[in-house]
């Protein structure tokens, strides 16, 4: 038994194990990510930018509040001149959006409507880091000097590193399959099939799967809530504010119109958020509006509590009303 023979067999073991791993990711994890995880929305957006060649289109950017609140089909019905796309992505903030800025600009939209809430600029809104890894193949790090080392590492993953990274999803994929099995055998509640929700970037959000108009636990959770750090917009600069300014500047530089929307928030929640945070948010957007000559439309306290599912998301009734009102405002702004 020579050393060389052992090394050859070791390499063979490596090859066998890696092949099995590859198959496990391909046939076990990827289907979960594509169908059952809303993390997949991040790469889907890049695929959308690459595919979408239509001339006159308007993008609606923002977090889940945009994804759930805006029905692009309703807006399309109001206007023949443009096609409207809901590109909301759960928990995304300006800093996260910078990664897709170049791809979005290349797809040449007429305008980008950016929905912002206090949490978008606080720097404490937890965006799932996994999304950075999942979009790594679409992103060129040279253009992204705003990111810190952690994000650069995630965004800088090559194909092999991403394949290895995806082992993280074996557990959630297993949990999901377990839920599917429970559903099949015991008729338990089926896990959310995310692929169905707004994959055409038009309307259908995941909240539609809930039968209630309001989260039955929302009032209780709001009552108990004491920490509002995720809404703490600072007075001075932070990376989210910087990222937001970069986005506005770059879009305008490429002759893409920018409309800023202060997203609707549940008045019950807004009341509890410290005035200082709200004031810092308003002051910053006023400054940006003035400096770049960009319109800001304020929907923060536009709707009463009956229109909301929870603190940040409208229910089906709210969504319909908001989509119409926002659509009309956007169309008016875009009129030559």
């Amino acid at each position: 038994m020579g050393k060389i023979r052992i090394i050859i067999f070791l390499l063979l073991a490596l090859l066998i194990s890696f092949s099995i791993y590859f198959l496990a990711i391909k046939f076990y994890v990827d289907p979960y990510l594509e169908n059952y995880s809303d993390l997949n929305r991040a790469p889907m957006l890049f695929e959308f930018y690459e595919k979408e060649k239509e001339a006159d289109k308007v993008y609606y950017w923002g977090a889940s509040s945009i994804k759930e609140d805006v029905d692009a089909n309703i807006i399309d019905d109001l206007d023949d001149s443009f096609t409207h796309y809901n590109l909301g992505n759960p928990a995304s903030t300006p800093l996260r959006r910078i990664a897709e800025l170049e791809a979005a600009i290349k797809s040449k939209p007429k305008a980008v409507v950016i929905g912002l809430g206090y949490m978008s600029l606080s720097g404490h809104w937890l965006f799932p880091d996994d999304q950075y890894a999942l979009i790594s193949k679409y992103v060129d790090l040279r253009d992204l000097t705003v990111y810190n080392e952690t994000y650069r590492e995630l965004l800088g993953k090559n194909k092999l590193e991403l394949l290895i990274y995806k082992r993280k999803f074996i557990n959630p994929a297993t949990d999901n399959n377990f839920e599917l099995l429970k559903h099949a055998v015991f008729k338990a509640k089926k896990p959310g099939f995310y692929k169905k929700y707004n994959s055409d970037f038009k309307s259908e959000g995941i909240l539609l799967q809930f039968e209630e108009l309001q989260d039955p636990e929302f009032a209780m959770k709001l009552e108990a809530k004491e920490d509002f750090n995720e809404y703490s917009v600072p007075e001075g600069e932070n990376s989210e504010k910087l990222a937001f300014e970069i986005i506005v500047k770059e879009l305008l530089k490429n002759k893409i119109k920018v409309i800023i929307v202060k997203i609707p928030l549940n008045p019950g929640l807004v009341e509890k958020i410290p005035e200082e945070y709200k004031n810092n948010f308003d002051v910053f957007l006023d400054e940006v509006s003035e400096q770049y000559d960009v319109e800001v439309i304020d929907y923060t306290l536009q709707y009463n509590e009956s229109y909301f599912y929870d603190g940040h998301h409208l229910n089906v009734n709210g969504k319909e009303v908001f989509s119409k009102e926002l659509g009309l405002e956007v169309i008016k702004t875009l009129e030559p």
Partner: peptide
């Protein structure tokens, strides 16, 4: 080799 492949997997 099968053992090592299993461990690596």
């Amino acid at each position: 080799t099968v053992y090592v492949a299993f461990v690596l997997l």
